[in-house]
């Protein structure tokens, strides 16, 4: 991953979130308050703008800037969670480019930060249910020498599977947890948006070839 690819990734997330803004908000309306799409759209649009104006010296600077912008613009729980994850990941990537192993370690650092802040375990019906399998798949692929595009593809698929698997779960964190049993039967919007972020990485890396 180089600086340009990191920037393109953030742009791709912004495009994806804008396109699927209503889908995310509808998922959130079912078990939350229906603003996840709007909040992420506002955040990633601002982040894409911020990193476009940035002259970064490292891959990590792009991600840190993205994270800082999300914390400043999104609010709710998703702002601090996504923002802190990207900041933690970015701090690990100090070079002008990063190999898949370094990216895997950075993604894992982001996941650790999400779990520290939110206290969620796998199975709590949160973004962790998409993020954790994605990191595992990415790390496994990078470990056997896969290129970035291949590792990101594996991560995106694992994240999407993880998001789908949240449907029957009962939420134990965040606003959906107040629904108890009634949170079952709906995919978690945070897990779905996490899968979108990994899908955007896979598409961006594939396009960069």
């Amino acid at each position: 991953m180089d600086i340009e690819l990191a920037r393109a990734w953030v742009r791709a997330v912004a495009v994806a979130v804008e396109k699927d803004r209503e889908l995310l908000s509808d998922l959130d309306a079912a078990i939350g308050d229906g603003d996840h799409g709007g909040n992420l759209n506002r955040g990633f649009a601002a982040a894409a703008e911020a990193v476009a104006a940035l002259q970064p010296g490292s891959v990590g600077e792009v991600l840190v800037k993205t994270g800082t912008t999300l914390v400043s613009k999104v609010g709710g729980a998703s702002g601090p969670l996504y923002g802190s994850a990207l900041r933690a990941a970015g701090k690990r990537l100090t070079g002008e480019s990063a190999d898949p192993g370094e990216v895997a370690a950075a993604l894992a650092a982001g996941l650790e930060e999400v779990r520290r802040l939110g206290g969620a375990q796998p199975g709590d019906k949160t973004m962790v249910d998409a993020y954790a399998p994605a990191v595992e798949a990415f790390t496994e692929a990078a470990g056997r020498g896969a290129a970035l595009a291949e590792a990101a593809q594996a991560a995106a698929t694992a994240a999407e599977d993880g998001a789908r698997a949240t449907e029957p779960l009962q939420a134990r964190k965040g606003r959906a947890s107040y629904l108890g049993e009634r949170s079952k039967g709906h995919e978690d919007p945070g897990a779905v948006s996490t899968a979108m972020i990994f899908r955007a990485l896979a598409d961006t890396a594939a396009a960069a070839g």
Binding site: G38, N39, V71, S72, G75, G76, A77
Partner: peptide, 11 residues
């Protein structure tokens, strides 16, 4: 005041 039903941001 944050957005509707969304907490304010730290700033």
């Amino acid at each position: 005041p944050g957005e509707v039903f969304t907490s304010p941001v730290p700033d």
